[in-house]
Design a protein around this nucleic acid. Structure first.
Length: 683
DNA sequence: CATCCTGTAAACAACA
DNA sequence: CTGTTGTTTACAGGAT
């Protein structure tokens, strides 16, 4: 009864604080009840436990967490890789190197939307997880753009050549000239194909870290570039000093130009339908997930293995040292045999790859749309600063936020097969780490109190929070309030609040004991939460006055403010055509179920700015939906100003029971209910 | 640096 | 007895 699934499911894994070690026993979900366990010496010891366990080989980590971390890692890698790639881009010998070099710097920083460079940490402070994710996407998009710029340049040159030849060959017979043109056009076409393929390959390689042999360790460096602070702990940290070898990668990519012509794979990303079964074969030769450049993939040298490089196992998160290939194979067979874990990891990897491919396609289309919109002929040489387009700040952000724009229902999000992964499909690359690794309690919640930011952000990103195991940037108090205010009655029982949390946030489906305690703690602690005795028990309500009373927001340049501004920009300032382009671009590509970006899933359609986004349809809460709570149409859930009526009611009237009616039928509190208070929030 | 705010842990009581 | 609900205390760490 009542014990909603959450309490059971995972029990461990508290937010992945850093592993402090201290494998002290206790730490079971029960926490509070036992009483006896208490004190357990070292503060915070219990918290770190799980993470630490994950790091070790003793399979403590649940498959779910593995999936999470792996995804995270892969995405990080991809990101890093793209970054490197972009910076390496300048080197293609030809004349535009200078340009592109500077160009790389500019757009990125601009994309950050802050005149001054922000450190990732700062960014994380300022931005909410979804925004961070969006930013990352933006960055990637920019990288891609730059790559495309590069290719475009080459196309330019071809064009130039063509022209010059045309002129030079004036005397030549027309048909010859026509042929030449044709040839050039073909070349151009090829170019484009290559470009796409190259991009694709970049993505793939960045993720799959294939074929280390190819270049003396280009990719090896990547894993370690991955946010050293979080992953390593979980995946068994690695400290190997990496060699700087980014150019080899780039080289490889460029070399492509000469040969490859098959760009087909791009159009049809591997469907990876049967989630399992392709991975480690019993004999130890894992079928590499992404066949990498189709046919040519078999080039791997006899003495190498796609998953083996630099003396270590490249299995995601493994990095076990192996002296030689034989040892590695052995290791592969033992450690990465066909089991749930490997399977899950494989699946994740597939998803990651697929996701990135989709994203690539999406970004490409977006680029097209952008260029179309800006009347840029594809061949027209553009000054580099261009890509950023007129409205630097807002647009770049809005684009980002919307980018994922996977407006399709999340229904299929979860990997069908189940087995080991109740996990949420993805997590924003950058912020996964942000929210997880950070040692202590996740501070820096956006200070709610600011009226509706929470509701708006929630509305906008609710899909994200629902699916991604990311800690929401709100305080417990604000969340509780939100939960309560979202209901018609403006009242919830404790358990219903719990349910709301678990329903709305994947994050809270995990370590229940902790946050439930926190919820109770907050309910008791804050005067703004008023407990009202009811016939069927007690319910909690919100005293808005009290709530608003709390320390005033302090607008000046606080991160919160910045954040709000940003989000405001991003969501509000979209221009229609742009949106259209985005939407257009994203729709067709997203038909693949497994992948989507929760990050902004909901952002595109419903809302324009602030609160607007009503409590979202949210039909998808499969399991634990309490009876009430149903009305999706109920909008404006958050009456920030709520004020009098409710307050006085809450005042906990002397009479023992009075008003509240018998359980069923009408809401006891009749009182509020209808005040719609449309014009609220947002000073 | 002091203070406030928040998150986390935990002890404990009342109750079902 | 166990688990839930509430209350309270303590502490750590970020923000002001």
């Amino acid at each position: 009864m009542m014990v909603e699934s959450a309490s059971e499911t995972i029990r461990s894994a508290p937010s992945g604080q850093n592993g402090v070690g201290s494998l002290s026993g206790q730490a079971d979900g029960g926490g509070s009840g036992g009483g006896g366990v208490g004190t357990a010496g070292p503060a915070g010891g219990s918290a770190g436990r799980d993470a630490a366990a994950g790091a070790d080989s003793n399979g403590e980590m649940s498959p779910a967490e593995l999936l999470h971390f792996q995804q995270q890692q892969a995405l990080q890698v991809a990101r890093q890789f793209l970054l490197q790639q972009a910076s390496g881009l300048s080197s293609p010998g030809n004349n535009d190197s200078k340009q592109s070099a500077s160009a790389v710097q500019v757009p990125v920083s601009v994309a950050m939307m802050s005149p001054q460079m922000l450190t990732p940490q700062q960014m994380q402070q300022i931005l909410s997880p979804p925004q961070l994710q969006a930013l990352l996407q933006q960055q990637q998009a920019l990288m891609l753009q730059q790559l495309q710029e590069y290719y475009k340049k080459q196309q330019e040159q071809l064009h130039l050549q063509l022209l010059t030849q045309q002129q030079a060959g004036k005397q030549q017979p027309k048909e010859a000239l026509g042929n030449k043109q044709l040839a050039f056009q073909q070349q151009l076409l090829q170019m484009q194909q290559l470009q796409q393929q190259h991009l694709l390959n970049l993505q793939r390689q960045g993720l799959v870290s294939l074929q280390p042999s190819q270049a003396s360790g280009p990719l090896q460096t990547l894993p370690q570039a991955v946010c050293p602070t979080d992953l390593p702990q979980l995946w068994k940290g690695e400290g190997a000093p990496g060699q700087p070898a980014e150019d080899s990668v780039k080289q490889e990519g460029l070399d492509l130009t000469g040969t490859a012509t098959t760009a087909t794979s791009f159009a049809a990303p591997p469907k990876v339908s049967p989630p399992l079964s392709h991975h480690t074969l019993p004999n130890g030769q894992p079928t590499v997930l992404t066949p990498r450049r189709d046919g040519s993939s078999h080039e791997e040298t006899p003495g190498s293995h796609p998953l083996y490089g630099h003396g270590e196992c490249k299995w995601p998160g493994c990095e076990t040292l192996c002296e030689d290939l034989g040892q590695f194979i052995k290791h592969l067979n033992t450690e990465h045999a066909l089991d749930d874990r490997s399977t899950a990891q494989c699946r994740v990897q597939m998803q990651v790859v697929q996701q990135l491919e989709i994203q690539l396609a999406k970004e490409s289309e977006r680029l097209q749309a952008m260029m179309a919109h800006l009347h840029m002929r594809p061949s027209e040489p553009k000054p580099f600063s261009q890509p950023l387009n007129p409205v630097p700040g807002s647009s770049s952000f809005s684009k980002v936020t919307v980018s994922a724009a996977d407006s399709f229902p999340d229904g299929l999000v979860h990997p069908p097969t189940s087995a080991a992964a109740p996990v949420t499909p993805l997590r924003p690359p950058g912020l996964g780490s942000a929210s997880l690794h950070s040692g202590g309690p996740a501070r820096r919640r956006t200070s709610d109190k600011f009226c509706s930011p929470i509701s708006s952000e929630l509305a906008q990103n609710h899909e994200f929070y629902k699916n991604a195991d990311v800690r929401p940037p709100f305080t417990y108090a604000s969340l509780i309030r939100q939960a309560i205010l979202e209901t018609p009655d403006r009242q919830l029982t404790l358990n219903e609040i719990y349910n709301w949390f678990t329903r709305m946030f994947a994050y809270f489906r995990r370590n229940t004991a902790t946050w439930k305690n926190a919820v109770r703690h907050n309910l008791s602690l804050h005067k703004c939460f008023v407990r009202v005795e009811n016939v069927k028990g007690a319910v909690w309500t919100v005293d808005e006055r009290e709530y608003q009373k709390r320390r005033p927001p302090k607008m000046t340049g606080s991160p919160t403010l910045v954040k709000n501004m940003i989000s405001g920009l991003s969501y509000g300032a979209l221009n229609a055509s742009y949106q259209a382009a985005l939407a257009e671009s994203s729709f067709p590509l997203l038909n693949s179920p497994g992948m989507l970006n929760p990050g902004s899933a909901s952002s595109l359609l419903p809302l324009s700015h602030d609160d607007v986004g009503a409590p979202m349809p949210l039909p998808s809460n499969g399991s634990s939906s309490p009876p009430r709570l149903s009305p999706p149409q109920y909008s404006h859930q958050v009456q920030v100003k709520e004020e009098p009526a409710e307050a006085e009611e809450d005042r906990r009237p002397g009479p023992p029971l009075g008003p509240p009616n018998p359980s069923t039928s009408g809401p006891p509190e009749d009182r509020d209910l209808e005040e719609e208070l449309p014009g609220e929030e947002l000073s």
